[in-house]
């Protein structure tokens, strides 16, 4: 029986992309497969004990000037409303965030059939998030939120 990680890695290679396969937890059969597309590195997590489940992630670096902004977590929450199946996690003291899709296609074959759609969805969500984080008009929105609550006597 072929390993799930091998099936997925072979699929990505067959689509033209180099992969880097590294075990996350050998005993539990958890593996991370890294590849690049459109200038962005994506990570696929496979589980030998659960060939129906996968995680597709990609990280976006937050520019230095935007890292200290307090509303970045709020921005990610708002983007999550537009992409409810994508999870965003801030990391490295706000220096980057990771966008992740948890997929339950049921089998490696089903996963590979919808593979590029999933990658595209994660990319679209991540790109939307970084766009909004670096969009300086968001700080105006934050100010309006403050003014609204101030006027309502909440502050």
């Amino acid at each position: 029986m072929p390993l799930v990680r091998d099936l997925v890695a072979q699929f990505i290679q067959g689509e033209g992309h180099k992969v880097d396969v590294s075990p996350v937890d050998s005993e539990a059969g958890i593996t991370e497969i890294l590849f690049r597309t459109r200038g962005q590195v994506f990570s696929i997590t496979t589980y030998e004990n659960d060939p129906g489940s996968y995680m597709v992630s990609t990280a976006y670096e937050v520019p230095d000037w935007a890292r200290e902004r307090t509303q970045n977590a709020d921005t990610l929450e708002r983007v999550n409303e537009d992409f409810p199946d994508i999870t965003f996690i801030m990391a490295h003291d706000g220096g980057l965030f990771v966008a992740t899709a948890q997929e339950e296609p049921g089998s490696p074959e089903a996963f590979t059939r919808s593979f590029w759609e999933t990658v595209s969805r994660v990319r679209e969500a991540g790109a939307s998030a970084i766009e909004r984080i670096v969009d300086r008009t968001e700080s105006k929105a934050a100010a309006e939120k403050f003014i609204n609550s101030f006027m309502l006597g909440e502050r």
Partner: peptide
Amino acid sequence: GLFFTRDDDEDAYRVAFKSEG
């Protein structure tokens, strides 16, 4: 991060590759 193949001949230099299939 893409694989590619070369297929030069007496007339031309050529590279073939795939991206996202």
